[in-house]
Design a binder for these strands. Structure first.
Lengths: 201, 201
DNA sequence: AGCTCGTTGTACTGATCGGTACAGTGGATC
DNA sequence: GATCCACTGTACCGATCAGTACAACGAGCT
């Protein structure tokens, strides 16, 4: 048993989810190290035995939180799953902005927040990396669709363009975060879209 | 005595600097919360009484570290102080890349790493914000120079363009960090430069 | 020499950390 | 209704955390 972290009962699944949800919410605001296991359990109403029943250690919990973040992020930008036109790309950027316009919490990407702290943790860094790659792959797939439909130049590289778009999203969110001002993200997305349109066919 | 953190003797200054240097290096890799005061003191060879002689608490040490990061960053891209032509801008991006090409440590912006963790700390977040604004202001000043020389469109907004460039730098560095691959930064800087050149006159 | 004050070393404290031990409990299955 | 096992509650552990107490040092000044 290496991975552990399974729940075989509906009740167990609910408890496990509650722990991950509480951890995700707390770590979004206070960071990984700033969120103790005890706080997570207090917030989720679970006991310590549950936590260590489902997770080998805190690191593994953080791993589950990273997965949860990816789910939340993609769930907040559903247009990314069906990108097939330039209008869809605009819709996608609008969804991205809307998430943070209705922001209750801080303006920030939960994965981006983790990136600095988790940085070079040998167990966690690959998980963050993978999450970003998954996110980006949806973008790349959409751009490939556009290219196949002849709306994007045949020599355009969807993977590379997708990475460029991701850098804009992340940079824009980072600046918007520390400035408490969405303008940085709006501009960054505008520039990214303009750049992509440069490959319009 | 609110700020404390002064050294009035050469010896004291050396000790204080050693503490800040050690803290800066450790926090770059392990993050703020992951770097205990004890580790900093062990690495700097100082004792606890020194630390609390020069800093009221750990938070204030982190404040000094943020300032140190800004000094290091600007010191690594001296072209930013004398931007006066399009060639200077290219030189600047090259310096930015060179820093991380000879990287011993991780590919990352120390301020960007902090951004996620410090996030919404009421004392530290403003310091990170201010550091970024200072950094960006040098860029804006350079763009203003270009505009005044007639090499940039008169209606171009240097502050806004500078912010756009910063988002590219930060986004590129974040992706390059988690991918251990400078390509993301190279592309981001290339796109940023191309965007700026769109306002060339 | 003696005084002063910035500076230093070491020992300590109470709180909190991640993680463990262990005795249960409750609902499904036979 | 006995059994089984996933699940739960609580008490506890050693380590480490940020921060404090306090006695001493040492260089410049008079």
């Amino acid at each position: 048993m290496e991975t552990q972290a399974a729940a075989s009962t509906p009740r167990g699944k609910r408890t496990r989810d509650a722990i991950v949800d509480a951890a995700a919410a707390l770590m979004y605001v206070d960071g990984v190290a700033g969120t103790s296991v005890d706080k997570v359990l207090a917030a989720s109403g679970a006991g310590k035995s549950q936590m260590y029943h489902y997770f080998k250690n805190k690191e593994q919990l953080v791993g589950a939180v990273i997965d949860r973040y990816l789910e939340q992020i993609l769930g907040n930008q559903p247009a990314i799953f069906t990108l097939a036109s330039w209008a869809d790309l605009e819709t996608w950027t609008e969804q991205l902005l809307d998430v943070h316009r209705r922001a209750g919490g801080p303006i920030a990407c939960p994965l981006g927040n983790l990136a600095g702290e988790v940085g070079d943790n040998p167990k966690l860094a690959p998980l963050v990396d993978q999450a970003y790659r998954t996110w980006e792959s949806h973008l790349a797939r959409g751009l490939t669709t556009l290219r196949d439909k002849g709306e994007l130049a045949p020599d355009a590289n969807p993977a590379r363009l997708a990475q460029a778009a991701m850098t804009s999203v992340q940079g824009g969110l980072l600046l918007a975060h520390i400035r408490h001002d969405l303008t940085a993200l709006e501009d960054a997305l505008g520039i990214a879209l303009a750049y992509l349109r440069g490959f319009k066919r």
